[in-house]
Design a protein around this nucleic acid. Structure first.
Lengths: 186, 186
DNA sequence: ACCAGGAGTATACGACTGTTTACTAGCCGG
DNA sequence: CCGGCTAGTAAACAGTCGTATACTCCTGGT
């Protein structure tokens, strides 16, 4: 047996901060704000609990830092308006059996609880999803149409979380394309 | 001023149990499982905290009792398959600006947290929504189609909770009808 | 070689949570 | 009219939460 030497880590404020942030990103995305404790985050980051408070002020502050570091969805909404339904359908079909890579939606799917988190999640949902999507839509009722497509995005995630993942079939993608066409009215 | 006499309530096990159940129904529906404490329920029911445990075993048991007392959605799914999209659309449009009357969906919309609640919520979602809806559908892929319609139902609720209520317009109802047609493939 | 500053640590704090215990007091059959 | 059953009560329990404090010890500049 080699002696149980716990490899001493060099003291690096920035690296530790980043480990905490990364652990929070993963855990928040997997389990939502309320289910994740700062102790879980600290353990996953292999850091001391007090450092979470020191570097991010509070749990809510850490949550905000996680959301800030995420890209928007503008890439998904690029291209011709006519291609939007199928692109959204393919993205959503992926969501049927796999949680999003980006923690943004994973986190937004949940976290309806704490009012403070609710506020930041709402703001993020608007600026990262609704508004970019609305900007791509021509014609009347752009807001209502974008909102309805967002509802489908959220709903598929909610269904996967509650009923378990389901491998999407080509028929599912076609159905979803039709659904998004109906949502967006294109 | 009439003297502050706290009207003595007759001792009635069944009535007290019912008050607790009703308070839990309301609170769970409004705020979800995790946000509601047994102390809040006891206070709303004007009953002692210990009685919750005595009559329902545990908080989760009380939650289960709330869900059990609720009607299913079979009424919504009755009638001709061709009328389903519009009926669902009208119901869903109502959900855009008002939480469901029935605490079932209000509760199911939330409560993705505790694993025990997750299990009972999942089971209830299947038996009260997915299965009755699936039974009304003819043709292939009934399960996938019912599941997709359920996703829209959940998604509209999730969107209302996060972005606030929105008064549905006739155009919204038409859009939703088209969405459910696309989901159900009819 | 030294020492100040800060990264990292251990632990305590107060406020909650769901649950349980020991108790009081009202009712009802005899 | 009175004793036992039981609805209802008050308080405490054990645990967890987010947060704050006081401390140790490594490290880099002089």
């Amino acid at each position: 047996m080699s002696p149980q030497v716990t490899e001493a880590r060099p003291r690096d404020r920035e690296a530790t901060r980043e480990r905490i942030l990364q652990a929070a990103r993963t855990l928040f995305g997997e389990q939502g704000y309320e289910q994740v404790t700062v102790r879980m985050i600290a353990a996953a980051a292999d850091a001391n609990i007090a450092l979470v408070g020191r570097y991010f002020g509070s749990k809510a502050g850490l949550f905000g830092a996680v959301l800030q570091g995420e890209p928007t969805f503008s890439a998904l909404f690029e291209g011709d308006e006519k291609d939007l339904p199928r692109k959204l359908a393919e993205y959503t079909a992926e969501r049927m059996h796999r949680p999003p890579d980006s923690p943004i939606l994973r986190t937004l799917e949940r976290s309806a609880g704490h009012p403070e988190v609710h506020a930041v999640a709402r703001e993020r949902l608007i600026t990262a999803v609704i508004e970019p999507l609305k900007a791509r839509l021509s014609g009347p009722d752009a807001h209502a149409r974008a909102r309805m497509a967002t509802a489908v995005l959220l709903g598929v995630g909610a269904t996967r979380r509650r009923l378990g993942p389901e491998e999407p079939t080509p028929a599912d993608v076609d159905r979803l394309t039709a659904v998004f066409k109906a949502c967006l009215g294109v």
